[in-house]
Amino acid sequence: MRSTYERGKSNKTTANDVALIGVLLAFILVAGLLERTIPLDFLVPGARLGLSNAVVLTAVYLFRFRAALLLTVLKCALLSVLAGGPSSFIYSLSGSLLSLAAMQILTRVFAERISPVGVSAAGAACHSAGQVLAACAVLENIGMLAYLPPLLIVSLVSGVLVGVIVKYTVPRLRAFKKSGMRQ
C-alpha cells in the first residue's frame, strides 16, 4: 500500500507536474504578499505567518529536491522584487534555504515516522535561525541573537499551523498529480 506521505519516486516530470509547480509558485507569491499585510511585529519584530512555507513543504513532499529548491529561490527573488526590496533578499534566502534543507533532511531520514507538523515546526525554527544569523552577519552585531528565542516561540505556533495545512493539501494534490500519469 502506498502511504500518504511517501515522497514522489517517479523520475518523470509530467505536464501535470509542470502545471502544479507553476500554480504553487503563484500561490507562494500571493501568500507572501498577503502575509506582509499582516505584520506580527507587535509580537516579535520581523515575525510573519509563514504561509508560503506551507507551499514549499508541499513541494518537498510532492516533488524532487530540485523542484522545491527552484520554488524556494524563485520565491525569495520574486518577493524581494515585488515587496521586500533588495535588503530583504539576503534575509529571506538564508532563512528559506536553511528551512528547506532541514525539511528535506527530516522527511528523508524519518520518512513515515514524522508527520508534516513536525517537519514544518523544524522548518519554521530553522527559517528564524537563518534570518537572525544573516542579520547578525549583515549588521555586524551579534546582539541580534537576542531576537531569536521569542522568534522561535512565534514560529513554533505558526509552524505547527502550517504543518496542519500541509497535512491536508499533500494527499489531495498527490491525487491530482497521479491523475496526470494515467494518460
Binding site: 524519518f110 514524522i114 508527520s115 516561540i153 513554533l156 505547527v160
Partner: peptide, 24 residues
Amino acid sequence: MKRIDVIIVALILVCACAAMTFMS
C-alpha cells in the same frame, strides 16, 4: 502528530524558553 513531531516541538520550546529565561 507522531512521536518525533512531539520531540521536535518540545525541543524547540525548551531551547527558546531556556534562552529567554537566561536573558531576562
